[in-house]
Computed example of a mutant assay.
Amino acid sequence: MTTYAALLRGINVGGNRKVPMAELRDLMEELGHGAVRTYLQSGQAVFSRDRGDEESLAAELAAAIEKRFGFAADVIVRGHDYLRAVAEACPFPAADLQPKQLHVTYFSAPVTEDRYAGIDRAAFLPEEFALGDRALYLYAPDGLGRSKLAEQLSRPRLNKDLTATSRNWNTVLKLVEMTAPARD
């Protein structure tokens, strides 16, 4: 059995695209996922599955959500090893920052620096970003809601042909913890 996190994009935001977590858990159990747990109301679920790959599991869940709830939701599925590696590879001093200052955007596919070449990084200082394995790390000292750099990074032209969903550092660490193999 492998434990995964499903990251749903854009649900339960501003009272729109509602997906009650209890119903999401039921739906995932109907799909054959085991040990289903959710975290917060913003679209994180952890589950176990003995077969399947991240892309097919994400596509299956996205199709089931659309059928059950009547709207499309982007889904990214990642396993514990990947989630842990992303957290460990953070280029910013996470232990010294407030969790609201650090975010990770998970991508459905790899991205390169070329995609962001048009952004004048110096113009946004002290905000910074760095790329990782299918991830973007954002340091926003005043939080995501006030971040001008986050606004630039989320422009559709930059994320064309990708599914992207962001999580704050607390959620990044909680998903690593929730997907960790059980200790004997």
Rank of each mutant, 00 (worst) to 15 (best):
D142Y: 01
E88P: 02
K67L: 10
G132P: 00
Q98P: 02
T105R: 02
R134D: 08
P181S: 12
I11F: 09
A180Y: 01
M21A: 09
L149Y: 03
S56V: 04
S147V: 05
D142M: 06
T179I: 14
V172K: 04
D114T: 13
S147Y: 07
S147C: 08
A62F: 06
T112F: 00
R183G: 09
I65E: 07
P156R: 15
G70T: 07
D133G: 02
A45L: 04
E30N: 11
A64H: 05
R9T: 06
P110R: 09
Q41D: 10
A64C: 05
F129H: 02
M28R: 03
H103W: 12
A6C: 09
S48Y: 01
S42V: 01
K18E: 12
D161S: 12
I119C: 08
F69W: 10
V13L: 15
M1L: 11
A73I: 08
G143D: 12
L61E: 06
A22F: 03
L138R: 04
G14W: 10
A62M: 08
I65N: 04
T165S: 14
L153P: 01
N168Y: 12
D74F: 01
G143I: 07
V104G: 03
R134T: 10
D74I: 02
F92G: 10
Y116Q: 05
D120A: 15
S166L: 11
V19M: 05
D50R: 13
A62K: 03
A95L: 09
T179N: 13
L8Q: 06
G15S: 11
S48Q: 14
L8Y: 05
A58S: 13
K148I: 00
G10F: 10
L131W: 07
R68F: 04
E55R: 14
I76F: 03
L125S: 13
A150S: 13
V86E: 07
L102C: 03
T165F: 05
D26H: 08
N159M: 11
F129K: 01
P126T: 06
P126K: 06
E23I: 00
R37M: 09
G34E: 15
D50T: 13
R146V: 00
P93Y: 06
P126S: 07
L158W: 07
D114F: 00
